[in-house]
Design a protein around this nucleic acid. Structure first.
Lengths: 268, 268
DNA sequence: GACGCTAAATGGTCTGACCATTTATAGCCG
DNA sequence: CGGCTATAAATGGTCAGACCATTTAGCGTC
């Protein structure tokens, strides 16, 4: 029923103590922790052990390690990137198909647009218009800047999420877009008429958000995403079967032969 | 514009290579990687360096390290726990307020319920009814099992997310519930009438999902969550100001004095 | 055949040294 | 006197080899 209370691993104890000190606010963001040599003495552990602990804290986004004189472990405030990264890992580990991502996005973008319309500030609107202008110039520049257009499209969606003022929307939507663009790029449409239609959606969307018309923003965003997904899924279908998520967990316990070996030159 | 391509840190290179091997599927989940001593030879690095890399991979949820003979680094499939944890870190570091979490949940639960209604299988329905019965018995047992009732409530929501068949809904909703219960537990209502109302919502929700009535499911779920949030926020307000997220980033660069020092006995 | 013990494989930790990077500072030159 | 440069010091990054702790597989005994 219960696990052994005290962890047997020293580095976990170090992680826990430093994490607690950071999360409790005893060590504020921006503060530099003592150097590794000092910390090792404070905790009574060896340097490799301490470094494992620092690596874990770094991976959690709680500290950032700077080199050189005056460097050291600096306390950070965790941001949305960690959430996006772990969500991305989940998606990449082949448990999430394109349809899942698309469906999820459809569910969320409308809501985000509506909230953004209710809360947008003047600077949000200015930023959106600026991005829209960028997108337009990319579009009119022809095929050479189509990649850039898709990037601007993404930025507009993320700027709308920012306008909601809700960091959860920001990180979740960032994760979704990040993963759509990274792993399904080959299915994004580059045909001119479709890109133009896309652009017109965005223009209407920004207008609705700027006007504070939540219902219109919701409707336009939902329609935009639905069409976008339909096109992408059509291309995915014609390009062959989309990989389906696997189920179950293999129980094999053989040793894996790690294929690549790029770092094989030992130092003299 | 560009960063130096090759990372200067050896352990990052090791992380990247193993991560790529795992995510590309070359090493499937369940497989055990070579032992540390073998890996260190394969990559041409020292053991501490290799171990830092393994710690990072473990923290990412990509491997799990087992002790003893036949142990070693075992490839895992990342699950929602990492997402929930990083979201929790975001919340605990005071950048996410209760309102943000509540708002996000309101946006997603209706959609989840509707999708579940469209796709639920017989076994999903059976599981929901079972959980509902548990919740009811907890409710009728009186105050002593109210914690348990809230737990059952959570499980019902997660079971509905399971029924959608979309792993993104599952992990995102799991993360939200996890964090609501961990960090806002003191604001959850324990009053009998409210719990009963909660239960009745759930009963109606399960009925709608079972009947395949997506629109009803959506409406009931949305209302349920809205009421739940309103109650929780009322309690939070009366218990004092909800902590607001801070903005900006302190730039102070002094050395922090780490207060605690529990591991101070050096080994003999 | 069931049980317990032993040994081997594996991760966990320590020590101390040296290398690489960054920045502060002192000194030089204009 | 001011600005630039070279040097040194502080700090993280890496290495090497050793020993301890834990777990399991395999063997032997009952």
């Amino acid at each position: 029923m219960f696990q052994t209370a005290r962890s047997t691993k020293v580095f976990q104890d170090v992680v826990a103590q430093i994490e607690e000190a950071i999360l409790s606010g005893r060590i504020p963001a921006g503060e530099t922790l003592p150097s590794e040599r000092e910390l090792k003495a404070m905790f009574g552990v060896s340097r490799p052990t301490l470094r494992e602990a620092l690596r874990v804290l770094e991976e959690k986004g709680l500290i950032e390690i700077r080199l050189g004189t005056g460097g050291g472990p600096v306390v950070r405030r965790p941001d949305a990137r960690r959430v996006a990264e772990s969500l991305g890992l989940l998606i990449r580990s082949q448990r999430v198909a394109l349809e899942h991502l698309a469906e999820f996005r459809e569910g969320i973008e409308g809501r985000v647009a509506a909230q953004a319309a209710l809360r947008r500030s003047a600077s949000d609107v200015a930023r959106l218009r600026e991005l829209l202008a960028q997108a337009r110039s990319c579009l009119e520049a022809g095929p050479g800047r189509r990649e850039e257009f898709l990037e601007a499209d993404k930025r507009i969606h993320l700027a709308i999420a920012d306008a909601t003022g809700n960091p959860i929307y920001q990180s979740v939507l960032a994760s979704v877009h990040e993963n759509i663009h990274r792993y399904y790029e080959r299915f994004l449409s580059m045909a001119a008429p479709e890109l133009r239609e896309n652009y017109e959606d965005l223009e209407a969307l920004v207008a609705a958000v700027a006007a504070g018309d939540a219902e219109a923003a919701r409707r336009i965003a939902a329609g935009h995403v639905t069409r976008f997904n339909a096109r992408m899924q059509a291309r995915a279908a014609s390009a062959g079967r989309t990989r389906r998520p696997r189920t179950g967990r293999p129980k094999a316990r053989t040793r894996a032969a790690l294929p690549a070996r790029r770092l094989e030159e030992p130092r003299p």
